[in-house]
Design a protein around this nucleic acid. Structure first.
Lengths: 146, 146
DNA sequence: AACTAGAACAGGAATGATTCTCATTTCAAC
DNA sequence: GTTGAAATGAGAATCATTCCTGTTCTAGTT
């Protein structure tokens, strides 16, 4: 398990005046162990003994700390993952329009550079302060194309 | 106003055994006249006299026909726009994380080509049938960065 | 080791965008 | 102009998410 992860998270939590409690740590561990974003329901199921209301509340707090962020796919559920600032891994998502599953993937660095250039240009052209980007590839996952 | 638009939509509707009624046409017109996706509430407000339940139901039907599609931003509202198949204009979105506003923009064709190449590669690598992509630039719009 | 004040928690109720229901109205074809 | 199916209108229902409230835990102090 990544030793620096909890230190980084603890620092961000205390930075906004919040404690890094056992329950919050357990959420972060589940997210760190999963290779893709999870729905709130999946997190509730995975963290037996943490009630739903606490899971939601802590996801909100972790979100304010910049530890966790929300991923929207094509279904009605919001998904959560550790933020790039914490994992150090910039990535994008494969979204299945059938079952709603979301999986991570990394884009080639050339493409990322093109996107960065585009973001700068948009700032200049439109007065929009571009901060980040989302690139989702939408289609049908291997499980659903049977 | 685009004369071919309604013909195209009518064809798609009858293709799935649905009528292209006055109310549905009025929704399509509002969407065609607006340079960006609209929330359901905005559509209800813009189409005075069409009740909310009908707006939602017709958006769902137009979605099945491939005429309209859903856009998710950063706030809790789903937005709707005419699909690329109907407008012929491939584009992406600028999303303000402050106010949630969504605006269209076109990416340079070189970037689009890189994304297409990437989508093909993903199909080969992972068995994911890539059908389309979403590229959103997230930041702060000019109105919100005062 | 107990005290205390504030934070976090547990459980359940409330919220609100979206979807569903069903009685009524419209439409298209005969 | 009748008829049967589809669309509409109004409101109720759904359900992921958020809020509320009383209780429990924690960190810092003596």
């Amino acid at each position: 398990m990544d030793q620096g992860l909890h230190g980084e998270v603890a620092g961000r939590m205390s930075g906004i005046g919040q404690r890094y409690t056992r329950g919050r740590r357990s959420l972060v561990e589940v997210l760190a162990d999963t290779p893709g974003p999870l729905t709130a329901a999946e997190l509730v199921a995975a963290s037996a003994s943490i009630p739903q209301s606490t899971v939601y509340r802590n996801l909100a707090v972790l979100g304010q700390a910049g530890v966790v962020h929300r991923v929207v796919g094509t279904d009605e559920f919001v998904r959560y993952e550790l933020s790039e600032a914490v994992t150090g891994r910039h990535h994008h998502h494969l979204v299945c329009r059938r079952c709603g599953a979301v999986e991570d993937f990394a884009a080639p660095s050339g493409l990322e550079r093109s996107v960065t250039t585009l973001m700068d240009a948009i700032g200049a052209d439109r007065g929009f302060r571009a901060e980040t980007h989302r690139l989702d590839v939408v289609g049908t996952c291997s499980g659903c194309s049977s």
